[in-house]
Each structure stands twice: as structure tokens, then as C-alpha cells.
């Protein structure tokens, strides 16, 4: 199938993009189009106007400070995979990026696009939630607001953004050098959508210990351990206590789903511990 007809516009600046959105109620922002493209080709999405933000220079840049790396919204998964940008999480972002779909998708798919889509199965939704990243959103006023990924993603395909706002970047706080992360994705075949995602982060210097269970159909579920200890991780040494922990945290699903959610987190923890 071919897409229904649409108009196409290519703003130069974020302000122009926001103005265009404000003027066009049903317009859709597109970056790499790797998620929207299939929907258009299936005619399940039929926006009258596409606003291509990939020619807005500032959205494709990286800003690094001592405490964080800010990744522009249109930075591709491939750029992150190839470690062309700063590594706020000791290589963890590159590792996550390399597992997204396929290379020819990663070269165009963008971190901002992925987050705005908020597909529960998407890698960035779970992994950036675990890192405590914040999303930068700009509206017609021009003043960026920052919202944590956890608050930004309200549910499946549902994000806290107004129609005339766009995501300009992701602010990823740096982990300390001693921090370790684990990531485990369960899917039917390479590059396919996750049925369960487990993320584990332990940063003793920052007192952070967190696990995330993602791809459960809604927003990822975050479990924070007590500051300064990694006791939380031990919960997942045993599948029963792991399951109890996820149950309490609000992960839902039938027995199979719960079993693979526990396994995903458990294996992320194992990876974190280096075994």
C-alpha cells in the first residue's frame, strides 16, 4: 500500500516548527520516519501535513557538561551506536542503540522520535527511564521545559506533550566511572519488538540502584533500591522474590508475561554483575 496524500514542510528552526504545529491541528512531526513510515504506508496514519524537523541544525547536536550529556532529538540510533557522541553511561547507550531494530533503520531512526512515539517495547523508553534522563520540550513560547522520561511517558503511545510542542533533546545525567548497567531484551527474533525488557543500574558513587521492567504494554515500571546499597539487585537472585517485587511495583501480565519480565530483569542484573 502507498501512503495517502500529505503536504510536507521543512522548517529551519524549532520556533517555525512550533508555529506550523499551532497552525495545523492534524499535522505530524517527522524525523527519521522509521515508525511513522510504515503507518503511513498502511494508511493507518493519514496526516494532512508532515513537518520534517531533520533540517533543524540544533536538534542534531550534542552538548556535554561535567554532569550530563544532552542528546539532540534527531540524533540517530546509529550515531549513538557508533559512539560518535559522549558516553554518559560508560558505553551503555551504545549497547542499547546497537540492539534497536536493524542497522538500516538505526541510520535514520532518532532518539527523540522514539521517545515521542512512546512505544512500550522501544529500547529508549526503558533504558532512559532507568538512567533518570529528562526530556527537553519546547513550545511556541520558546522556553524549554524539562520532564523526566518517567513522567513524559504516560502510557502506551501516550506522552505528556502538547500538540504545538516538540521534543528538542534528551538530557542524560552522567553516571560515575564505577557505575555498572545491565540490559536484557526478550524478543522473538533479532531486531523484533521486545516482549520484555529488563534494565539494571547501580552507581555506588551516586547512590543509585534501580531496576526497570519495560515492554509490558504500558509505561515502564521503575523500582528504586535504597540509596547507597545494591540490596535491590539481590531480590532478583530468586525468581519468586523477583516476581513479588515486580508484582508489588505494578507490573502486570499473565503467567508467561510475568515470567519473562522477571527473567529480563534478572538477566539484566546478572549482566550488571558481569556474569
Amino acid at each position: 500500500m502507498k501512503s495517502a496524500a500529505f503536504d510536507y514542510v521543512r522548517p529551519r528552526s524549532v520556533a517555525e516548527a512550533c508555529d506550523l504545529l499551532a497552525e495545523n491541528a492534524d499535522a505530524k512531526v517527522v524525523a527519521g520516519g522509521q515508525s511513522l513510515g510504515p503507518m503511513l504506508n498502511l494508511r493507518l496514519a493519514q496526516p494532512p501535513l508532515l513537518i520534517d524537523i531533520t533540517r533543524i541544525a540544533e536538534l542534531g547536536r550534542i552538548a556535554e557538561t561535567d554532569g550530563a550529556v544532552t542528546i539532540g532529538a534527531t540524533v540517530t540510533h546509529a550515531a549513538i551506536e557508533d559512539q560518535k557522541i559522549g558516553a554518559p553511561a560508560n558505553g551503555f547507550l551504545a549497547r542499547v542503540a546497537s540492539g534497536i531494530a536493524y542497522r538500516a533503520v538505526r541510520t535514520r531512526g532518532t532518539i527523540g522520535g522514539s521517545l515521542v512515539h512512546a512505544d512500550p517495547a522501544a529500547d529508549w523508553v526503558s533504558s532512559l527511564t532507568a538512567l533518570g534522563a529528562e526530556i527537553l520540550v519546547v513550545g511556541p513560547g520558546g522556553t524549554p521545559r524539562r520532564v523526566s522520561v518517567a513522567d513524559f511517558v504516560r502510557g502506551a503511545m501516550d506522552v505528556a506533550i502538547e500538540h504545538d510542542e516538540i521534543v528538542t533533546g534528551v538530557h542524560v545525567p552522567r553516571l560515575s566511572a564505577t557505575a555498572r548497567c545491565g540490559y536484557h531484551k526478550i524478543c522473538r527474533k533479532t531486531g523484533e519488538f521486545a516482549e520484555a525488557i529488563g534494565v539494571a543500574v547501580f552507581d555506588p558513587d551516586r547512590g543509585l540502584c534501580r531496576v526497570v521492567a519495560g515492554a509490558g504494554g504500558g509505561r515502564p515500571v521503575v523500582i528504586d533500591g535504597a540509596r547507597g546499597t545494591d540490596r535491590l539487585l539481590a531480590t532478583f537472585d530468586d525468581p519468586r522474590s523477583g516476581r513479588e517485587c515486580l508484582d508489588e511495583a505494578g507490573v502486570t501480565g499473565d503467567d508467561y508475561q510475568m515470567q519473562i519480565h522477571v527473567a529480563a530483569v534478572q538477566r539484566a542484573v546478572q549482566e550488571l554483575r558481569g556474569r
Partner: peptide, 14 residues
């Protein structure tokens, strides 16, 4: 199923 994301064909890793 109406896409190859729903109907899974084996790939090189399968």
C-alpha cells in the same frame, strides 16, 4: 497479521 513484524520469517540469526 498484516506485516512481517507480526508474521515472523526466520532471519540469519534464526
Amino acid at each position: 497479521a498484516s506485516t512481517l513484524s507480526d508474521y515472523l520469517l526466520p532471519g540469519p540469526t534464526e
